[in-house]
Write a protein that binds this DNA or RNA. Sequence first.
DNA 1: ATATTAAATTCGAATGTCAAATTTATTTTG
DNA 2: CAAAATAAATTTGACATTCGAATTTAATAT
Lengths: 411, 411
Amino acid sequence: MPGLPAQASDLRESNRQHILAAIRRLELTARVDIARETGISAATVTSITADLVAEGLVEEVVDPNPGRETSRGRPRVYLRIRPDAFLVAGAKIANDRITVTLVDFRGEELHHHVALLNTGPVPEAAALVERLAEATAVALGALGRSNDDLSAIGVGLPGFIDAPTGVVYWSPSFVERNVDFRQALVSAFSCPVSLDNDANLAALAEQWFGYGRGLKDFLVVTIEHGVGMGIVLNGEIYRGTRGIGAEFGHTKIQIDGALCRCGQRGCLEAYVSDYALLREASVVLKGRIASGAPEQAQLEVLFGAAASGHPAAQSILNRASRMFGLALANLVNIFDPALIIFSGEQMRYDLLYGQQVLDHLHGNIIAVDRTPPEVRVHRWGDRIWARGAAAMAIDGLTHRANRSLRPALVT
Amino acid sequence: MPGLPAQASDLRESNRQHILAAIRRLELTARVDIARETGISAATVTSITADLVAEGLVEEVVDPNPGRETSRGRPRVYLRIRPDAFLVAGAKIANDRITVTLVDFRGEELHHHVALLNTGPVPEAAALVERLAEATAVALGALGRSNDDLSAIGVGLPGFIDAPTGVVYWSPSFVERNVDFRQALVSAFSCPVSLDNDANLAALAEQWFGYGRGLKDFLVVTIEHGVGMGIVLNGEIYRGTRGIGAEFGHTKIQIDGALCRCGQRGCLEAYVSDYALLREASVVLKGRIASGAPEQAQLEVLFGAAASGHPAAQSILNRASRMFGLALANLVNIFDPALIIFSGEQMRYDLLYGQQVLDHLHGNIIAVDRTPPEVRVHRWGDRIWARGAAAMAIDGLTHRANRSLRPALVT
DNA sequence: ATATTAAATTCGAATGTCAAATTTATTTTG
DNA sequence: CAAAATAAATTTGACATTCGAATTTAATAT
């Protein structure tokens, strides 16, 4: 039961999206190439790109690259996404900071700003909206722009988020449950708002700017404070029935195993996340770890001890990497993806996310005459996740219906 | 990057499929209802159904149900799938038998036949094709039809099967690896052949005839000799990058756990499948189990002992059900499906697949203010799986391109 | 017999794509 | 340096398809 268009006008919208996507992917491209790339006839490409140029979403570029070799015939006219068609914001909300990035319509970053949150009690949703608005205003100010210049904003935060409706069932970032957080953001910004789980934004960032470009199916696994996953199937983020992302971190890898923050036992997160590692480290590295020290510093001690041969420290990391490899193998056995991307800043801990994990992964997947999926590591921080959030907002803008509030800036 | 139609003719094909699917789903329906159901205009419904009737895929029914209340106005003309448009076979190959079913174009069973395989050494692929051809010929003969009357055949078997290409990488049903099994079947039957993993056929059967009707996303878990899974996402069977189904049975639930047939340790299958249960039973129920007895009989002894209070027997089944519940919980945490269907004949062992499994499932899923997925049990045997195979073949026939070999029988 | 009603069909406008022909803007050639 | 060659882009006209509105059709109600 496919959900395809039923009218001719839907057909045009579909081709329009194809062409826009092709221009975005190829960055700088002539109409001939778009026709070849998409399979749409040159006549139709002419017609649709004329619309796009008239609307200000796409622009012609005069002399893109004088270096390329010349030939006779009418010279190709290059097209690209018009950068200043829209000004879009993306934000990533983490437990201790808000990262805001401002991007043009291509998704290129114009400016970014990090606002630290005070690490006291968890705030209320309204307060968080306030902080986000402040941080965005600062970033906009640095560009000499104001909130009125913003065409859309995308926001990512941890927790259980129903992206289609914008309802946050639960998030560690604020105290309330079942909040219509998107509505709150729309009130604050008065522009279209997209909302999603932060791991899905990491996946979107990979799809737009990273290793996922051009791929239809891949997985992105994130390790930060917890463990997350974004699933791209058939070119789209998979969200399950209730619109909520996959809970890879609470996948069980040990019956009656280690206690997890969620109250259950044996979750992957209870073995590999920051707090899980520190919980064990606190027992065997008591003398070395200052109890009040920030988590990052404590982790440094643990990894340093392991590197210098401390057996218990090594044992902690060994177990974590074995568990991680096992959980990843389960993903491969279920999804058979072409590519798995590890994304996150913590990735710098090579000890944990290195060869040992891969060995365990490969040792636990069913591989009958087929090669295991490719695994790539992306040491990307909050800034790129925020850019993923902006990409989500841009995606909303390219669908004509969503562009009612603020039309493109045609000069 | 959506894969939508680019031409007007593609649009018609798409609407055609929608309408055909609606007629199939509603079984008996007037054109007005199709228009309302699909959102396609009445004018277009008239046009497309005229084609379908002319092609012999759909027929008008004169007086479907005199009992329904009458009204004034032009009476509705009912349409239905024309049963005798095509004669289609479906086959399920199991380790000890081949089940063949013959269905009409609606998917209704006309006749079925079970051919036992001798349980000696694993045969060669060519021999299996031979046996399948024999079994199909017997079934056809019972209807007074021959191979020439067959419009398509769908075949399901266990193993790693690339459905799009028809290559069997490995199957317990024959000795060779990497066989182009579809080509072998095409040679034998000289009609279009669809091939897939048997668990995917169980999923297809649920989608066409069972609990999955009308649902876009659900999982089907099968327990027979091994453990399998079929995933339906967005109305389609999900097959991963290499076209091979999900390997739920080799999902790991215990690091360094029980040894599995596949050579790895801790696979779900190594805890819950027939051979896993018997492996343990043989240790503690030595006196009661005749070593040469068929597996079914041995299993009966195990379940009987557990039911009558034998502690070791109970312990075996308890562990299996806990492991099964845990593995299912992982699926829920990853997919968040609306429905999980347990399918298989072994389901009669309520002890194993009963409340205890559900309790473990519910105890291990992340559920923040949301209800757990519905779980339904379908005690369906090989016959229905074979019908799923036939459904797959029918699906191939409804796409115009695949209907070149043998056109519909228009009277 | 006539009015009413509802399903199905027909008709014409609108939309859209595409292949082929044409235009346009270059480079190469004589 | 003009003419030929070439390749990109555009225009033109044929064709396909959908849809709303008008029309036809076949029944029941009055």
